[in-house]
Structures are given as structure tokens and as C-alpha cells.
Nucleic acid binder design. Structure first.
Lengths: 240, 240
DNA sequence: GATTGCATCACTGTATCCAGTGATGCAATC
DNA sequence: GATTGCATCACTGGATACAGTGATGCAATC
């Protein structure tokens, strides 16, 4: 194992982590699904051990749930939990924008405009990579804040709701209106008013939350009960 | 191992996690210190494996740092990182208060008053458990929000800065003024104005951050360089 | 005398093995 | 016929064993 690691992972455990993470993000491992260490280990050509340690990391980020002696399941989020994630994100991204404001100049605004153009183009193409552009847009702003921990936390929240965003965007298949609400954020940043930009970002995130929650509640998705430990009668949103 | 686990941990890994966490919180394992899995495993009468998995969890929470093939060190925070943690906490706790407001009634306010009395008493006794009362006060408010993820994130931030808070409080040995600023928060909650309460909580947290940062910068502590990976020339605050 | 290269050693990461726990299905009894 | 108890089985968590990597110290050469 001294050569030929395909991915950029330095260690087998890291490789397992990235592989499982990706599978959850794109919805290949679905909420409620049981993750069998042995199976995944075989797929990745390694032993169960690094896979188990990857489970630990994922569990800590809330993406899977490990119940002692009863295995590891992908922890789907309930609508309430999704909404809560957005609530948290709204204040964190609000903070990020506020802290980023002093560093915003013409070059930054130009970059933001180009981000939005990319989003609009991929939106019209109906491509599913609108989401990646969208996340890149948000991450760019966050990075401007110069706060690494903040960036990390926001990124984790993006990942957690990504599977749900994905099906939503797939259904509405024209995320142009969504793109337009981004303009409001950039416009707010152009005013130079940090408090205003913060509030605008908050509103923007919460508006997305409301639209997504509405969509999920509208029953365009089957709402099953992938049994989860602990919380009684909590039925996570099921992906198609 | 079917009986007699001393702590409430269901699994060895959990026990290791709690033990190491506690050691870091109270400052027994200090920033920059190398954590040897074998040593800790012996102390806890288990093998290296569960200890390693505990390391994973701690690394994810940012309390330790694992560099591939080079072991696990307690990741001390720089003053900037401490300040950043407070910034994040300020908006999260602000959110928590805002969401908690609808549930605030006379009984809740009475409970908050009793929390503060306890804090004042332990403050005058010079006891180091002022901190636990203080954290309990904040956690009580957070719980009122009814947002489990939010509570968890805030709690993690409290833990991360706890060692530094501890030495600070030990130095000023009369955290009465600190207690008084809590009153401002409770008073704001009494007004029933959610936005005002949110802003007040934010200010309260940031004021604490400023005082702590000032103390740490004032050099009451030696500022050494427990070498950390990645960031060049980042010298974490060293505990006495 | 200093610097560089090599060898040895300590330690980390991974694999395999073993024991304990929860689940499932069948049989027996009510 | 239904329900409960037991036995078996699959799987998880933990321990031990092994291989690979980085560090350290000594020696040799410049």
C-alpha cells in the first residue's frame, strides 16, 4: 500500500471517509440505509477498521448514527432538523458576511458577479451542478471573512442538507428564481453597510429554508419511516 | 467486560472519549501535549483501538489534531481562534435566545434568577465551579430554544474555550462583575423583545470575549510555541 | 569541526482474530 | 392458534499482531 492510492487521501481511513461522504451527499447512500462496514471495506479494498473510524467521523458530523452494537445508519433529517440547520446557517453566514465586508472591493464584487453568471448558465442548462456553483458562491463569501472555523461549520451544514437540496432542485428544474435572490445579497454587499448585508444574508438563507420546507411538506416526496434510534416517532424525509 | 464499567459509558470508546475530553477541559492534558494511545489505553485498562477512535471524535471537534503517521496532539487555540469561537458563539447564542423568547414565562425567569444566585454564591466562595454554573445558565437558555443541534454546537464551543476561561477566572478570582453582565441578558429577556434579547446576548458574549482576549494578551500567561502542524508560526496560548 | 547520510528504533496505521450482544426463527406450551 | 421462550446466527466492538513511516542518533566524509 506504499503506492497507487487513487484519491488524494493520505490514509485509508481518510479515503473511506471521503468515499462514504460523497455517497451520502449525492444520495447514493440514502437516509435510513444501513451501512455494513464489511461491504464498504470490500468495495474500497481495505479492512473494516478504517471504515469504522470513518463512521466515527461521520457520526460526529451528524451524517450517520451509530447505535452501540446495532450498527451504523445514514441519519436522514426530519423537516424540523433541516429547518434548524438553515436557521443555524442563516446566523453563521450572516456573521461571515458582516466580517467579510471590510475586505469587499471592486475585484471581489466582480468575482461575485462571475459566480452568479456561472450559476445562471448552469441553471438554464438544467444541470445539477447549479448546486455546486451555489455552494462555491457561499463559500467564497465565507472565506472572505478570514475565519477558518466559521467556514468549516458552514460547510458542514451545507453538506448535511445537500441531498435534500438536490432533489428539490431536480424537481423545480429551473433554479433561476433562486439565483435571483442571490442578487439581493450581492446588492446589499455593494452598499457597504455591514449590518444590512448581514440581515440580507440571513433573510436569503431563511427564504431558501422556507421554500425547501414547503416543497418537502408538499409531499412531492414519499415520507417514510426509516427507523432511527432515540427519538420516538421521528420520521425523516425520505429521498426518492 | 460484561459488567462493572465504572462510568456511564456504554462502550469502551465512549469511555475513552469522555476521559480524554475531561482531561482536556480541566487542563490536565495541555495544548501542544502529545497524546500516546498506548499510555492512555493502559490508564483506562483497554487497548489502543477505542482510544484511537476517541481521538477521531476529538479531532473532529477540533480539540486535538491528528497528523498522519505523526500522532495526536492537544490542539491549543491561538488568541485569534479563541476570539473566533466567541464570535461564532455570540451569533449562535443570540439565535438561541431569540428562539427561546416565546417560551419564556414567569417560571423560566424565576429559574434564571436562581441560576444567577448560584453563580454569585460560587463566585464569592472563589470556587472554580462558577464556570459550571455559568455554562449551566447558558445551556438552560439554549435548551429553551428547542433546537438540539444548536445546543450541541454551542456546547462544543463552550468546551473548546473552557481551559482558557478556567485560568482566566482563576486569576481574577472574583467573577462578580462577570455575573453582573448576565443580569443584563436576563433583563433583556424580561422585556419580551426577541430582537433586543438577541442583540443583548451577542453583546454579552462578545464582551466576555474581549475581556478574555485582553487578559491573554496581557501576558499573564507564558506564550510558548507548542508546535502545531499546518499553520506556520501560529503560537497557541499556553496554559500555566 | 560541521554536515550529511544511513541505520535503528519507536510509533502509527491496518489487518486479522476473538468475544459479546442483539436479532430472528422455530418450537413448545398455554 | 397465538404467544412466549430458547437456541442459533449474524454482526459489532475490542484485542492482538504485523507492516510501513517518520524520527533520532551515530558515524563517516568533506
Amino acid at each position: 500500500m506504499s503506492f497507487g492510492r487513487t484519491s488524494s487521501a493520505a490514509t485509508a481511513q481518510e479515503e473511506a471517509y471521503l468515499a462514504i461522504l460523497q455517497a451520502i451527499r449525492v444520495g447514493r447512500y440514502q437516509p435510513g440505509e444501513r451501512l455494513i462496514p464489511e461491504t464498504i471495506a470490500q468495495e474500497l479494498a481495505m479492512s473494516r477498521m478504517p471504515v469504522r473510524e470513518a463512521f466515527q467521523r461521520l457520526a460526529n458530523e451528524g451524517l450517520v448514527m451509530i447505535r452501540p452494537n446495532r450498527g451504523c445508519v445514514v441519519s436522514g433529517l426530519t423537516i424540523d432538523e433541516i429547518f434548524e440547520s438553515f436557521e443555524i446557517r442563516s446566523v453563521l453566514e450572516g456573521l461571515a458576511v458582516r466580517l467579510a465586508m471590510p475586505r469587499v472591493d471592486a475585484a471581489v464584487l466582480a468575482e461575485l458577479d462571475s459566480f452568479m453568471q456561472r450559476m445562471e448558465r448552469s441553471g438554464e442548462a438544467g444541470g445539477g451542478d447549479w448546486l455546486s456553483h451555489h455552494q462555491a458562491f457561499h463559500e467564497y463569501i465565507c472565506r472572505l471573512s478570514g475565519r477558518p472555523k466559521l467556514v468549516r461549520q458552514i460547510s458542514a451544514l451545507h453538506i448535511a442538507v445537500e441531498p435534500y437540496m438536490r432533489v428539490w432542485l431536480h424537481h423545480i428544474d429551473r433554479p433561476r428564481t433562486a439565483t435571483q435572490t442571490q442578487h439581493v445579497v450581492v446588492d446589499a454587499m455593494k452598499t457597504g453597510d455591514a449590518a444590512f448585508a448581514e440581515q440580507t444574508m440571513r433573510d436569503h438563507v431563511m427564504r431558501t429554508a422556507q421554500r425547501l420546507a414547503e416543497f418537502l411538506r408538499s409531499g412531492n416526496l414519499a415520507t417514510g419511516t426509516p427507523r432511527r434510534a432515540g427519538q420516538a416517532a421521528s420520521s425523516a424525509v425520505q429521498l426518492p
